[in-house]
Design a protein around this nucleic acid. Structure first.
Lengths: 340, 340
DNA sequence: CCTGTTCCTCAAAGCGCTTTGAAAAGCTGC
DNA sequence: GCAGCTTTTCAAAGCGCTTTGAGGAACAGG
């Protein structure tokens, strides 16, 4: 069933039917009702491709996901997508995901744009000096970065959490509890968020006059074994830390596994603070959660990022927007005073 | 830059340019080369919407993801999508994801179809007697189910792992090791895969004359706390199990956490076998992995599912296809003889 | 030099919708 | 009853591509 058939059926012109369905004012209420009813009855829905072509809007948002980078699919991806997807369905947009090999990333952005596949793009996992920002600026597509790129850069829109502040606070908490030797299991530091977390951590240490020991700073893919193995190694070596900071709950679970295998108690023998993205399958919940954490929902971020981007697309003036979210610092059972 | 502009530039007709670009034989090799070069030089790419409209093919595959069901975004989603996405980019398809509230699921499938948004659909997380199978059959869209629905049903295409066999083998291994009291922490049993796993488990028990005790069979969302809390409860109760079977590595990690907290050693005091989807962020790897597991890559499944569906779309005769993958049973350090 | 082939190129008609500009219909008031 | 409005409806022109059916060019054979 297409527009023409429906309009023939009703004895109206396609124009009138189209207008009735799209809420234009030039249609009598009664006619509109008749059209709506007939459309529902015959299961008519406009052909999306045709609509897109006619309006010039694709009503789709693109997400480009590089895949082979370390073969690690970010576990937060699912929750982020769920959040974004909610917004999309509310606002009538589709989500188009392009999975691409690392080296095809730029080409993917270019082709997605030149083919008019999307009205806007969301940039995932920004690195320091991410080349995608100048690229997308050059292409002139509306886009929004989940996270940020290098400090100086201002010519783009973003939503980020205050990674620096969160890890500064977390480190301060550990210092307040008397810890002086704090290991940090960070994500890969070419990622902007990891960079900022490290900066926050070091600022806190430096302000208290605690030396930064690069020997106990690690930056890797945030897997469970990373937490496990690093912890085992750290605690077997001389001068082990009394506290561990991790960038991911998954890594923290690895830390926890190592500790209990070694007969050490979380929060008594070793304190741990982790960042918690509030992933649906890894709740760190309860009145007193297991892990003390810096916390921010990545699902909520996904939802908001999508909203901001759509607003950006709809709005005429193309000013840049940005939002910086503070994390909660939530006390759990994994922190306690440094053992003496 | 559009077709007309490019053809004017070249002094050719749009037809010739289109044919040259799409590999039709009616174009001289030299002309074709000239066109290709000009297209590359001016960054011309056909407008996707127009192409879709003209060809009647959307070159997109739809994924409908229900979101609010228990607020749990399946952690395997990311890896599955990564696998599927690889196939799509190889074969020139786009992936369109629609996130939808539980009760809007049927409407989502209908609208996606009537709007001609996709050429095919992948069905995630099939339940027993899933209503989507008859719905999609009625709509007449090509689709493929990742998993299966009720036993009798044959009128659909699917790719699944042999859940029953895998859990039968896992249970048999535990029985061989002398375990007689085996707890099973399964996924929600309205899901087909969970159903089959339970059947496999019970068959193994029954064949050996070991009674099935419903008191130690659990079926919940496969989170980490589910594993943790259930294990604590089980081991505190009288007549605790000597082995635990779980449907997810995430749950198994909860089990492991509970065990070590209680001073019990995995593989010595309590044996654990889990299913392992080979998620990128939760590797259970190494020569001797931590967990003994039934194993099958969900990423590979995603890739293959996409392939099968595209073949289905391309092929003329609409016969049903299906693939049943056997899981590997990999020995790790989490299993050992039952304590006497 | 003309006709018959083969090879290449083209004009034009769609695909199904939106939207512009115009016409028809329905009112009002003189 | 008609000019002047407003309200409702319509025909037709795109949107940018593919594809059909036909024409032109080049070439060989008679």
């Amino acid at each position: 069933m297409n527009l023409r058939e429906l309009s023939d059926l009703l004895g109206l012109s396609p124009t009138t039917v189209s207008r009735a369905l799209n809420g234009y004012p030039e249609v009598r209420a009664e006619t509109r009702a008749r059209v709506a009813e007939a459309a529902a009855k015959h299961g008519y829905a406009p052909n999306f491709q045709a609509k897109k072509l006619a309006t010039g809007r694709s009503m789709s948002i693109g997400h480009v996901v590089p895949t082979s980078r370390h073969e690690m699919i970010n576990p937060i991806f699912g929750d982020f997508i769920a959040g974004a997807g909610e917004t999309y369905s509310k606002r009538g947009y589709d989500m188009v995901i392009t999975v691409v090999e690392d080296d095809g990333e730029e080409a993917a952005y270019r082709s997605i744009h030149s083919q008019h596949k999307v009205d806007g793009i969301i940039v995932h996992g920004p690195r320091q000096d991410d080349p995608r920002v100048p690229l997308l600026n050059a292409l002139g597509v509306p886009y929004l970065v989940h996270g940020r790129v290098a400090e100086g850069e201002t010519g783009y829109s973003w939503l980020d959490i205050n990674n620096k502040r969160a890890f500064e606070r977390a480190t301060n908490l550990l210092l307040d509890l008397g810890h002086r030797r704090i290991a940090f299991l960070n994500g890969l530091e070419n990622m902007h968020f990891a960079q900022r977390r490290r900066v926050g951590h070091e600022i806190a240490l430096t302000e208290r006059g605690v030396p930064v020991d690069p020997e106990i700073l690690f930056a890797e893919e945030m897997t469970e074994p990373f937490g496990y193995e690093t912890t085992r190694r750290l605690l077997a070596a001389p001068n082990p830390p009394t506290a561990i900071l991790t960038s991911s709950l998954i890594t923290a679970m690895g830390v926890s596994r190592a500790l209990s295998e070694m007969g050490l108690q979380l929060g008594r023998d070793i304190s741990v603070i982790t960042h918690d993205d509030e992933l649906s399958f890894l709740p760190n919940a309860g009145d007193v959660p297991l892990f003390t954490c810096t916390r921010s929902s990545v699902r909520a971020a996904g939802s908001r990022v999508a909203e901001l981007l759509i607003d950006l697309i709809d709005s005429e003036e193309k000013a840049h927007v940005s939002e910086l979210w503070e994390c909660q610092l939530t006390l759990g059972r994994s922190t306690g005073p440094a053992p003496t």
